[in-house]
Every structure is written in structure tokens, then in C-alpha cells.
Design a protein around this nucleic acid. Structure first.
Lengths: 326, 326
DNA sequence: TTGTAAGCGTTATCAC
DNA sequence: GTGATAACGCTTACAA
């Protein structure tokens, strides 16, 4: 493949001039510019971006850390990121880690290695302190509420959102409220668990730990929840479920057993997914697409800003979408 | 940041020796290796991968072209790709193009620019001839049946799969069969349209073009199909639907109008998605995860193989999964 | 087993 | 406006 030197020689100009043409710099006479452009065309020349990355110290690439791309939750955030990346002409490197810390650390090492300009951590098994060790190498943004750290974050207040959800159920007259969660030790999940427990404790009510159901990640897990419910001697009359697709699985399965919703079992979901809308699922919208978009904008700002840019903590709002399952 | 020269100087060895240690080459005395490792540790040194990419001409990165990451179909293929990429220590660059040809061309230009070692095209608006122009710059694999081209492909035979689906419906006694498709001019979709038309034409039957419904991409589109059906004077008694989530939307909506499935309307889907399983949807499994995994393995083989590696055309099998909607 | 030095293909600096 | 030339940080002949 031709290189810039060859283009310069054939066009009868210096490499500097070629570089100027390539980078749309001013101060190039139009005839020289034309000559260069012509040679580029003739030789079908294309820049070697690795050389550009080396000299500039930038790659216009950002890594995205998430556990599973085919989970709707993550793919919507990714969609938001991708929209902004396209706009800014940045590349997104998908790092599907399955919550393996060693893989997540590899991504952070890419930041050290200058392979990428920044990292967006959508969900992680790493603790915030570990992530902080890498902030010296470049901007990092998480999509979790990590508190005031040396890296930025975009988040919704799960504690507050969850309590609103519970309050909504209580306002509608439900008292025996169960709870379906994904990972038991997830970052946002842990916050929601606290919200759940605190909500009842503050009211002097017992927390039914047997109504806290974990590992609810898929539609089929949702369906399985119904069977766990059916086997209980004392059942909740309402359920707050993280993940609308999990709620959808439950609702569909409930239909098979003539469990009426909300009469026999009220349900409020989390995420506002299309399948939930179709099922009339009352849910809490938490702006996933916007979360991805915002994360990208923050990291871009930090890349282009001063080196000493302060971390940003952007809170996104949530809202309850009332439909028919409560 | 420290560089290899500094590590060499501080360790009292040459840069070559440092490079050898970095790349786990043999023929380095253990004391020198130890010295180098110690300095690396002390200075918290990390290689600048851009320099490595420049000198080696490889990046260990592959771009993935697809329209929308949050469509389940694509995210599962991506999952298959990601699994293999992790294994091979490759990075995946997500290029969400929304079927915009100019964006897709940009990705192919990345191949020219040496930014990536290969391209996996999951779905594209580009015609095969255009893609062929880029095969000289590096390996390209598509996840569509593109015929015997200068690039590789992994695919299922949509023509045959679709006819099997139709035959299955006919065998079950259905005669008035409608068809829901995504994009009207999609690559695989066009093949399926031919299959649909040929199937009836060969049997001397009329093709009901009013039963060919397009732009069915989401659950909600599926729900809308039901209403289009309800407004028809003459309705099909069975439907073949590309995309199980579309079928799911239709089934859920049908439940609201007491349309019995399969008695009033039989349905066979395409893709074998979890939501379909939950709804008892009879569907055609087309190995999406495996398709992604296979695509990666092919491209990796071509990167590591001889320059003159011939393109690979890998056909994946499909199978009808019998459940209860037919 | 080790080191010297020549690249890789750009952009940045600075002089004219 | 233009052009030498020095980086950028690494790998790899080749020599010792």
C-alpha cells in the first residue's frame, strides 16, 4: 500500500503538504491540493490510522463494559451510546465481560495502553475503588450510582425509584408485596434490596424474606416465579419486579393458570420495555437509551476538555408509567 | 508515561531485551528478565499498543456491521461473536449503521486504513458487488447468503427454511397462509418473499399479496398485524412470521380479542427466541448464536491463515420446533 | 544470549 | 504557503 511519502513524491510536494491536505488544513494552494488529491485517487491511497493514533495519542475509540449484550436492558443503553458515537464519529468497542473481573480489568488496561480514549462501564463486578485506580489513564463513566468518585457516573436513584414503586402499590391498597430481583449482589440490585427492606422496616412491618426472589433475569425466570408463588402457603398480593421482560414472563405464565392480574396479583415492573407496554404492564421508566447517550456525551466532553476535568455525576429522572397491572 | 527506552535504560539492558520480555520470547537470561519485570512494576509501565499496531500491521480488532444492536436477532449474533472474540483475545468494534450505506462504507474503509483486521457484516444495505471491492484489504464475512463471492459467508438457507415452514402449515391442514416480513427489500427477506410466492405458484394457487404484510419489526408491529387482519374481509387461517418477538406481539394482542390460536389463527415463527418458547410458539430455529460464533471463527482463520485463503461458505442448519401455535 | 539500528507511517515544529 | 526533519514507541533483522 502506498504511503504519504509516495503520495508526496508523485505529487511533487512535501509530506507536510500532503498531511495538510489530508487533515483539511488551510494554507495549501489550490493547485497543490488538487495535485495531491489526484494522486491519492490514482493510487487508491488511504491513511494508516495506527500511525495517526501513535503520533496523536488519540484513537477516537471508547470501550463499553457490560456483561451480556443480548439482555435488553444493556442493548438499549448500548443503542444510546451508539447513537452519540455515530454523531461524534467515535468507535465503540464492545467488551462483553460476563461479570468476570479479569476481563473488566483487561478493558481498563486498554485505557493504560492508549488503545482507547475512554471507558464506559455499564455494569460491572469491580468495586469502585478498583476503578478509581485507572482514572489517571483517561476518562471513565459508569452507568451506576457509585457516589462521588474520581470517575463520572450517569444513574437513576434506584433507592428512591424503588420506594416510589412500593409506595404506589401501597397507595393502591396492596400490603403483601413481594420482590423479584436479578443478581443478588449486583450494584443497583443491592440498593433496591435496601430500599425494599427499609420501606417495610420503617413502617414497623416485617420483611418477608421468602418474598424476595433472586436470579430473575429472563422471561423464563419470570415464568418460574409464578410457580414459586403457587407453592407458597402465604402469597404476596403484589410484586415489584426488576426487568419488564421478567414481569412479562410471569404475566404470560399467569395467564395459563388463570391467575388474574391485578386482581389476584398486582405487578409493577422496571425498565419500560416494549413487551411490557403490550401487556399493559405498569412500570417504572428509567431512561435507558438516554442513559447511554448521556454517558457518551460526558466521556466525550472529558476527552475533549481540559485534562483536569472534574468528574460529572448526572442523575436521570424516572417515572411511573401507569397501565393496567396494578 | 514511561516508554520501552526508559525501561531499558533503568534495567541496564537494551530495548530489544525489554521487547523480548514483553512478548514472552525465549533467550532472555532469568536475571535480566527479572530486572526488566521489576522496572516495569516500579514505573507502572504499559505498552503503547498503537505503536505495536503500527509496526506489526495488526490490531486484533474486528468490526461488526449491523443496523440496530437492540434488536434481539442481532444481539444474539453479537453474543456469539463476542464469545469467540473473548476466547481469541480479539476486540469487537460495534458499528451500528441503521442500514445507512455511507456508515457501512466507513467501516469498510477502516479495513483499508488498517484500523481493524477484518469485518463481519451481520446485515447490510450494501450490495455484494460493493463489498467485494474491499476484499483486497482484508477478510470479510457476511451472515447472509450472498452466493459464491470473494468474501465468506455463514448463513441458513432462508428459501428452503421458509418453504419447510409453509409445507408444515399445509401438512397441518392450513390453506390460507399469510406472511409477515420485516423490511420489504432486505436481503434474506427478499429470498423469503420468493419462497412464499413460488410455494403457491408451483401449486397453481393464487398468491394473496394482501396477506403479505411488511415492516413487521417489533412486538408492537406484531400487535398491529392483528388489527390489520381483523379489518380484512377474507382472512388467512395461518401466518408465517419472521421474528418470534413479532409473533409474540400478535399472540398477546390476539388474547385480548379472544382470537384462539391455533384454532382461529395458526402461527409459525422464525428465530426461536425465549419469548416464543414461553408462549408455546412453533418456530424455526436458525442458530443465531452459532452463526455469530461461526462468523468469528472463519474470519479468525482467514486472518491467521495464508494471505490467499479462499472464501468460506458455511451453511448452518435450521429446524422446526413444534410447539402449540400450529 | 544480547545489543545496535533501521524501520512502521504519520503529525508537529520550526525555519524560510 | 511550503518543506526538512524530528518525534511517536514499538518490533525485528542482523551482528556480535
Amino acid at each position: 500500500m502506498a504511503n504519504i511519502k509516495e503520495i508526496a513524491r508523485m505529487s511533487g510536494v512535501s509530506v507536510t503538504t500532503v498531511s495538510r491536505v489530508l487533515n483539511h488544513h488551510p494554507y495549501v494552494s489550490s493547485d497543490k491540493r488538487a495535485a495531491v488529491l489526484k494522486t491519492i485517487e490514482q493510487l487508491n491511497y488511504s491513511r494508516n490510522m495506527n500511525a495517526v493514533h501513535l503520533i496523536t495519542g488519540r484513537t477516537k475509540a471508547i470501550a463499553v463494559v457490560l456483561p451480556h449484550i443480548h439482555f435488553f436492558y444493556f442493548s438499549v443503553i448500548m443503542d444510546g451510546l451508539a447513537k452519540e458515537a455515530l454523531l461524534a464519529q467515535y468507535r465503540l468497542i464492545l467488551c462483553q465481560t460476563n461479570y468476570r473481573p479479569e476481563e473488566e480489568l483487561k478493558v481498563l488496561d486498554m485505557l493504560r495502553n492508549k488503545e482507547i480514549d475512554g471507558v464506559v462501564i455499564v455494569s460491572t463486578a469491580l468495586d469502585p475503588a478498583t476503578i478509581e485506580e485507572y482514572t489517571e489513564y483517561g476518562p471513565i463513566v459508569t452507568c451506576q450510582d457509585s457516589g462521588k468518585r474520581s470517575f463520572s457516573s450517569v444513574y437513576i436513584e434506584h433507592y428512591s425509584a424503588f420506594r416510589h414503586g412500593l409506595q404506589y402499590l401501597v397507595d393502591k391498597g396492596y400490603r403483601n408485596i413481594g420482590y423479584c430481583e436479578g443478581r443478588r449482589n449486583g450494584s443497583s440490585g443491592s440498593i433496591r434490596q435496601s430500599a425494599y427492606k427499609d420501606f417495610f422496616t420503617e413502617r414497623g412491618l416485617a420483611v418477608h424474606s421468602e418474598w424476595m426472589l433472586f436470579d430473575c433475569l429472563t422471561e423464563e425466570d419470570g415464568a418460574a416465579v409464578l410457580h414459586r408463588l403457587l407453592n407458597m402457603k402465604e402469597r404476596p398480593d403484589a410484586l415489584i419486579i426488576t426487568g419488564d421482560h421478567v414481569a412479562a414472563g410471569l404475566i404470560i405464565e399467569a395467564g395459563k393458570y388463570n391467575i388474574r392480574i391485578p386482581e389476584d396479583l398486582a405487578i409493577i415492573g422496571f425498565d419500560n420495555q416494549p413487551i411490557g407496554r403490550l401487556l399493559g404492564l405498569t412500570t417504572i421508566d428509567n431512561q435507558l437509551f438516554e442513559m447511554g447517550a448521556a454517558a457518551f456525551r460526558i466521556i466525550l466532553g472529558q476527552i475533549n476538555g481540559d485534562v483536569s476535568t472534574e468528574p460529572v455525576y448526572q442523575k436521570l429522572s424516572y417515572r411511573i408509567i401507569e397501565r393496567t397491572t396494578v
